[in-house]
Design a protein around this nucleic acid. Structure first.
Lengths: 146, 146
DNA sequence: TCCTTTTTAATGCAGATGCATCTATATCAA
DNA sequence: TTGATATAGATGCATCTGCATTAAAAAGGA
C-alpha cells in the first residue's frame, strides 16, 4: 500500500497540466480582450457579480468571497472600477463601516461589449480544442478540486 | 447547427472551473511552501530546468520557452535566483550576447529541500480530491488545451 | 566588406499584488 | 453601560509584472 502523502505519477501530471493549461488559456483569452481594446477579465468578473446582485448592490466583503481575491485586492480593484465609472460606492444602510457597490449604466454597457469578445475567446481557446462531451467531463473533474 | 463562435454551456463551465480550480489549488500549494519557509514555485520550476540541463546550463532564452514566461520576467527571475546564490551566470562560449545559467550546489540543495513539501502539497490538494483514475483522465483532457 | 535586420538580454517606468498596519464600527461579555 | 474583541475597509511599502525601449552582438544580403 502506497504512502498517502506521495502523489502518483498521474496526480503529478494532472497538477502540471492544470497549471500549464490554465496559464496558456488564460493568457490567450486576456490577449484577445486586450486586442479588442477591452479591460482585463478581473473587471468583467467583478462587474458581473454586481449585475447579478441587482440594484441593491454588493458589499466589498461579499465580492471577496465570490471572486477569491484578498481584501486589499478587492479594495483596489473597486478603486479602479470606480475611477473608470463602472461602479458606484454607496453608503451601507445597516453598517456604517461598509458600503454598497452598484453597477453603473456604463458598467452594464461594458459587460455587454465584453461578452461577445470573451465568449468567442472561450470557444476558440477551450471549446474548439475539446471533443463533444469532453468539456462536461473536464468541468466535472475540475470541480472535485474545489 | 450551432454557431462555431459560441461556446456551449459545458464549455463555459469547463472554462470557469479551470480558472477557479487552478487558482484555488495553486494558492494552497504556494501557501504550504511559504509556511515551510520556502521560496515560491516559480523558483522551483526554473531551478528544476537547470538541473535537467546539467552542467552545461541553459540560456535564458531557452528557459523562456520552457517556463512560458516573458523575456523580461526571465531576466528578473534570474536576477533574484543569482542574488540568492541558487544559480550562476557564466559567459556563453558561442554567443557573446548570451550567457549560460548553471545550478549551484546551494540551488541543488534547495530543490531537494523543496520537493518533499511540494510533493505533499500536490497530494493534499490534488491527489486526495480525485478518485482512482480521475487524475489520469484529468491530465489527458487538460493536455488537449495546450 | 558594409549596412540592415534580427535576436538576446537588461532596464526605466507604470501598474498590480502581497503584507502589515491602521481606523472606524460592530459585537459581545461582564 | 463599559471595555475587550472582531470585522470592514483603506493605505504605506516593498515586490513583482507588463510594456516599451535600449544596447550589444549575430545573421544575412548587396
Amino acid at each position: 500500500m502506497s504512502d498517502p502523502h506521495i502523489p502518483t505519477d498521474g496526480v503529478v501530471q494532472a497538477w502540471v497540466a492544470l497549471i500549464r493549461a490554465q496559464r496558456l488559456v488564460l493568457a490567450r483569452v486576456e490577449a484577445d480582450l486586450k486586442a479588442a481594446g477591452l479591460p482585463p477579465l478581473g473587471w468583467y468578473d467583478a462587474l458581473l457579480e454586481l449585475r447579478r446582485a441587482g440594484s441593491s448592490g454588493l458589499r466589498p466583503v461579499e465580492l471577496e468571497g465570490r471572486l477569491l481575491l484578498e481584501q486589499h485586492n478587492i479594495s483596489r480593484l473597486v478603486d479602479r472600477l470606480e475611477a473608470a465609472g463602472y461602479l458606484a460606492r454607496k453608503p451601507c444602510p445597516d453598517d456604517r463601516r461598509g458600503q454598497m457597490l452598484v453597477l453603473t449604466e456604463t458598467g452594464g454597457e461594458l459587460l455587454l461589449r465584453m461578452w461577445p469578445v470573451y465568449r468567442t475567446a472561450i470557444q476558440q481557446h477551450v471549446g474548439r480544442k475539446l471533443a463533444d462531451g469532453d468539456a462536461d467531463q473536464l468541468a466535472t473533474l475540475l470541480k472535485w478540486l474545489f
